[in-house]
Nucleic acid binder design. Structure first.
Lengths: 231, 231
DNA sequence: AATCGTATTATGGCCTACCAAATACTGTAG
DNA sequence: CTACAGTATTTGGTAGGCCATAATACGATT
């Protein structure tokens, strides 16, 4: 068995996940899907009990989430779930527009049919999820649509940035996709992106991606200001 | 000096910084300016001794730097200073180009003469620093040039992203600015950005900002590949 | 001598326990 | 009813310990 380095194929996949990573995922998920609401205090010792881990781990997790922007730390008061104000949300959508536009342009310029195929697959999955009212599926497949957009042209860093920003507006996203007509318009806009990429139209792909994000941003703004007045 | 802010002016400026933040800054600085080199192991207990803090704090700091991308964590081996490969650096420059271009366009469209004034001030400071061979000053003033670009149009989130990415390529930056002719070309390119903003030419400002970053990226690539072959 | 197996060491992951300082709460005295 | 003192809560930070793993050194066996 002393062969070459190629044995990587049979390398046993050990879990390798540390307790801290598991806890991180749990807490992030809890924030993202609303188990912890914006403004909620995150008391260390309570989290210890709920997660079944020590304070050491909890503190590291909170630090991590803080640097992700999901948790804010009030001095002498402790961590709370970050509140996102409308202006910040708009900025995040704007950044996503710039980066997704960039990625779309690159995809178009590359002219690789595999890209189009992969994007269309995601798009179909999104339409199916909408049809089944499977909103979690819509989010997941939308995410993989954009992941394709970035990773097919090897823009992993940009994809990381987009991901980082996206978790901060996740509950907004879940509200916008439920909006009336979004199930029609959203996929239609994304389809325009794919069309532009297919015909190698970089500028068109860029604009289509920007348009899609801009539309989401507008809906988010409406939702947010509606929620604010109702409080 | 009068009026409502009087009290605030007197208020004792308590550091308020937690030990952990101080330690974070120290370690980040140590990495950024090369005290710790890429690939170096960061042994927790050693850092405790060097920083004079407990392991808890060190661990939180390492976690934070990890999520900033400055530190990588090898499983079963521990944290090391992240190595940055040439492709990643190019991606970072590309993202900066997209975001700084966006900000420049917004500045141009806003048409506020204060923006131009502030940018010119930074630009003068950059030229002075180059003249005095004060490379740290060049970096600092370049940073404040871009900070102005983003914050004058209230794009704090994008500025945060750019900052986050910039620390990862900081030692590259300090190499590029030392390059021959960069002391002339750099400010000249930035001057073009300011000119476009002054005449309200959004598209021109966008392109000028992109050009500047692209030039920096090209130099960085040359520097990096030169360094690689020499090893 | 080459190889194989076994201590030893270094280190990270994780835990418990503790203390100090700031904040929030509460009950009592005036 | 208010002011104030005391108490509980909670974070920031420290100390130290235990266990698992990986690497290294070392010694024994063939």
């Amino acid at each position: 068995m002393s062969g070459a380095l190629k044995d990587a194929a049979i390398r046993v996949e050990r879990p390798a996940k540390t307790l801290r990573e598991l806890a991180l995922d749990k807490v992030r998920e809890a924030i993202v899907n609303g188990y912890f609401r914006p403004g909620d205090r995150l008391v260390e010792r309570d989290l210890c009990a709920q997660l079944g881990v020590s304070r050491t781990v909890v503190r590291e997790v909170l630090r991590h989430l803080e640097s992700e922007g999901l948790v804010a730390n009030l001095p002498n008061k402790g961590p709370i779930v970050a509140q996102l104000d409308i202006d910040e949300a708009k900025q995040i959508y704007e950044i996503r527009g710039a980066l997704e536009g960039m990625a779309a342009r690159l995809c178009a310029e590359r002219g690789n049919p595999e890209i189009v195929a992969a994007l269309e697959e995601s798009l179909t999955a999104i339409r199916d999820s909408y049809r089944d009212q499977d909103m979690a599926g819509v989010l997941a497949n939308t995410s993989s649509f954009y992941q394709t957009l970035f990773t097919m042209v090897d823009r992993h860093v940009a994809w990381g940035v987009v991901n980082l920003l996206t978790v901060r507006i996740n509950h907004l996203r879940s509200m916008t996709i439920k909006t009336e007509r979004r199930g029609i318009e959203g996929p239609a806009q994304m389809s325009k992106i794919v069309d532009a990429i297919r015909r190698g139209d970089g500028e068109g792909a860029y604009r289509a991606a920007m348009d899609h994000v801009a539309a989401a941003s507008a809906i988010a703004e409406a939702v947010l200001s509606a929620k604010k007045t109702s409080e």
